[in-house]
């Protein structure tokens, strides 16, 4: 009887000890998880600087994630292109931000202003741009919302534009900033994405001049980014080593938004 008692209590002790430890750890970890989630979910929203509108820790995570995915970016990775016949006849207009004001922009008076880092300014007319080699692209335009559409754009390859206007020293900086003439809509692009061979300053859609709602007279078409980075109606181009202001990054979206 003595043997039995010792043997039984040992195994029971072992069971309760292991249950105590495992359930204790489980409960503590679960509580820790809930608290961590509450902390993250209720974490303060960043104040608008270059970026805004996101929970502070999530913004830090987006910026770190950008660094990771910049490593796989390559000019050899090209967006898939399609035959002209597959391009949408009615190109989707998702918003008129940046062009709602002064809808009737005088296109003939428009000039693209290129401002170098040292403040030097270059003025380029639409005809100057049209004189440069034309690049066309038919690709699947993708929106952060989740929709996409095969569209046909034409214009000047951004890297051609840089070379032609001897802006190579500017292209060594880290970012390009673009904004509408009324400065109401603006975007910042990292230089590698801007210099990607499929990035174009577009003045045509479906082989016709850009209509106002698509950003006449000149817009950015950058297939390695979501639609939010494809600025309509470019007025000014700037270069810098710091992130230029970005309309959608101020509203909680990822600054990089690369595809």
């Amino acid at each position: 009887m003595k043997t039995k008692k010792i043997k039984k209590s040992t195994i029971d002790q072992k069971i309760s000890r292991r249950n105590f430890i495992s359930f204790g750890v489980f409960g503590t970890a679960a509580l820790g998880g809930v608290l961590a989630w509450k902390w993250l979910y209720n974490s303060p929203i960043e104040t608008i600087t270059i970026t805004g509108g996101a929970h502070k820790p999530l913004r830090r995570a987006l910026n770190k994630t950008e660094l990771a995915f910049r490593k796989v970016f390559s000019n050899n990775n090209l967006v898939k292109t399609y035959p002209k016949s597959m391009a949408a006849k009615k190109v989707r207009v998702n918003s008129d931000i940046g062009i709602e004001a002064e809808k009737k922009l005088d296109i003939t008076a428009w000039k693209l202003q290129v401002i170098k880092q040292n403040g030097e300014m270059l003025q380029v007319s639409l005809d100057d741009l049209k004189a440069l080699p034309k690049t066309e692209i038919i690709f699947d335009f993708k929106c952060v919302e989740g929709w996409d559409q095969i569209q046909y754009w034409g214009g000047v390859k951004f890297s051609d534009f840089i070379t032609h206007y001897n802006l190579d020293d500017q292209a060594k900086l880290e970012y390009v900033g673009m904004e509408t003439p009324d400065k109401g809509y603006y975007v910042g692009i990292d230089m590698p994405s801007a210099m990607h061979p499929q990035t174009i300053l577009a003045y045509e859609v479906n082989a016709n001049p850009l209509p106002l709602e698509h950003g006449a007279p000149l817009r950015l078409i950058i297939p390695v980014k979501y639609g939010i980075k494809n600025l309509k109606r470019i007025g000014t181009i700037t270069f810098s080593n710091t992130r230029p202001p970005d309309y959608w990054a101020e509203r909680g979206y990822d600054y990089y938004s690369g595809l």
Binding site: H55, A61, L62, T65, V144, E145, R251, G252, Y253, D254
Partner: peptide, 11 residues
């Protein structure tokens, strides 16, 4: 809550 969703999803 699209932008918020993306920020959580990509973390």
């Amino acid at each position: 809550r699209l932008s918020e969703g993306m920020a959580f999803h990509f973390l």
